[in-house]
Each structure stands twice: as structure tokens, then as C-alpha cells.
Amino acid sequence: MVSKILIFMLWFLVWLLLSWPPRISSFITGALVSAFVSFMTMDILVKDRPSGRSPLRYLWFVYYIIIFLWECLKANIDVAWRVLHPKLPIRPATIKIRTDLKSDIGLTFLANSITLTPGTTTIDVDKQNGYIYIHVLFLKEGCPDHDMRLPVVSKFERILKKVFE
């Protein structure tokens, strides 16, 4: 029930931003439209998940967004340096790493944040066995072979586990 209300609030927020200075007529129309849209998209967006998660996870989500923006900025400076360097210092590789996340939305956020952080892009997700295949722009010596984890990825994974599971 809580997630249904959250989806309604999300669509209502999108409506409010689209029809910005808020008036009473646009409020009523927006409530009707977003109720209809959230009824139609419920099957896609809401899956049955165990309840009883602590409300502290919204705070963790805010923390995740701050960390994510910081890593995103670092990633861009790193890639910009590699583009401008005359010798193109890259050692590309596709590697597979293990993940503990199970839920769809957690995996989606993990894949998105991997794509926007330093030198890594998600290629494919193997949900049954819990692997993620990523393309690395600069692979450090002997990095993935012994435990199949990258430091940046496990940092995001730790936070996302608190938010979504």
C-alpha cells in the first residue's frame, strides 16, 4: 500500500513540475490524471516485496544521492583527463563481478550508478547467478581475479542494500 501511494506521489510531482505555478484547477486535474496513470502503471512498477523495512532507508537514499553525485563528478574529470592525454592511457577489459542484490530496482540503481562512475559501464546482468558484467576503461594490475569485486561497486552495493532490501 505504501509503495502505491509513493507511485501516486511521484506522478503527481511530475505533473506539478510540468504545470508549474500551482493553481487549484491544475491540482484537481493533476490528482485525477495521476490517480489514473498510477492505476495503469501499478503492475509494471510495484512488485510484492516483504514489508517491515525501517523508514531510515529514505535517509540512506539521500546519502546515496550525495555520494553518487560526487563519484559522478570524479568520473568525468578522470575520463576528461584520459581523452585529453596525447597517448590515450587505456587498458580496456570486460570483467564479471559478483553482486548480492536480489531485487529488480536495486539492480537497476546499481547498474545505473556503475555506468556513471569512474571508468566502468554495465554490459549485462545475470540475475540467476548474481553476476554483473562490466566494461572497464582502465584495469589495474591483477584487479578482478581473486575475489571479483571492485571497490567503487562494493561501496554502492553496501548503501543500496540498506535502501532496497
Binding site: A93, T94, I95, I123, H135, L139
Partner: peptide, 8 residues
């Protein structure tokens, strides 16, 4: 130049 190709 690709070093490792585990996805392939």
C-alpha cells in the same frame, strides 16, 4: 588492446 574479455 583489451586485456581480459570475460563477457565474450
Amino acid at each position: 588492446d583489451t586485456v581480459i574479455d570475460q563477457y565474450g
